[in-house]
Amino acid sequence: MTIKNQTFIASVISSAVFIAPAVSASDWYTGLEVGGGKHSSSFSSNVEVDKDDPVKEAAGKLDSANYLRINLGRYITDNVRVYGYAQSGSKSEVSYIETDFETTDKTKFEKNDYQFGVGSDYLYQFNDDWSFVAGGNLGYYNSSLDFKFSQKDDEGNSASLKKSSTNRGAVAGLNAGFGYNLTEDWTIETGLKYSMFNDNEHKLKFDDEENSQLKYKYKDATQYYLNASYRF
């Protein structure tokens, strides 16, 4: 995602947010949203890593992009709405245990993330009950990756190592789906969402003879979502 694209999306959403208070035909609403999907993730290292090494397998198993989101917004008209959101990603965790005759090694990775941002949607009404929804959002993400390694031998001796990485940056998304009005106040929506993350790369550096370094990159994410909103 280029700076030009970020600026364009931000301008569209910001304009909608500032125009909203000046329009009289508006209603407030709040909603709860759950979603699930995967990041487009990749792994790299400055040293050679075996195909079956736990650190390489973790990249494919830490790409979960499940989340829980709370929205609070306002309808400018019956067809246009703006909102702010707070989102928490579900914790992704991968553990590996390797045991030989003398030692037991445990490797653990844990990924967490959250977002805050604003967005805008356009709703095309098919009839009084059904509508098509399309929109976009721009926000701020915080993503963390923790690495833990521990070793125990049959004599009771133990050792451990911990490394952590945190990233922060911009996230932009597009969404499209369908909504159904259960009542005048309650609506449910479901659809597909695509999110783009700016520089969401985690680097883990180790103080060994090779100065080894692991990189996990979580780029875009494709997710299905379901939400319920109340209009008041």
Rank of each mutant, 00 (worst) to 15 (best):
N71Y: 14
N71Q: 10
V80S: 12
E57G: 11
G84W: 05
P54D: 01
R69G: 01
V82K: 08
A86V: 08
G84R: 03
A58N: 06
Q87S: 10
P54R: 01
A59F: 11
N71P: 04
N66A: 14
V82D: 07
K61S: 05
V55D: 07
Y85E: 02
G60Q: 12
R74W: 11
I70F: 11
N71C: 05
K56A: 02
A58H: 02
K56Q: 07
D78Y: 03
R74E: 11
D63G: 12
R81Q: 14
L68Q: 05
Y75F: 15
L68F: 09
G60M: 09
R81C: 12
R81P: 06
I76H: 02
V80P: 00
D78W: 08
I70H: 05
N79A: 13
Y85C: 03
R69W: 03
N66Y: 12
G73H: 11
N66Q: 05
A65Y: 13
N79P: 15
L72T: 09
I70K: 03
A86K: 00
Y83I: 07
S64L: 14
K56F: 07
Y67S: 03
Y75D: 10
N71F: 02
Y85V: 08
Y75W: 14
L62Y: 14
P54E: 01
R69I: 03
G84K: 10
Q87M: 12
K56W: 00
L62A: 06
P54N: 02
Q87W: 02
L72D: 13
L68T: 04
I70Y: 10
S64D: 15
D78I: 01
G73N: 05
L68N: 04
K56L: 05
T77I: 11
D63T: 00
Y75G: 03
N71K: 10
G73T: 00
T77R: 08
D78V: 06
R74Q: 14
V82T: 13
K61I: 00
G73K: 01
T77K: 10
D63K: 10
N66P: 03
I76S: 01
K61L: 09
I70P: 01
E57M: 13
A58Q: 00
V55L: 06
Y67R: 13
N66S: 12
L72K: 06
I76P: 06
V80H: 13
K61T: 03
A65M: 14
L62K: 03
A59R: 03
R81W: 14
I70D: 00
Q87E: 08
R74M: 14
S64Q: 13
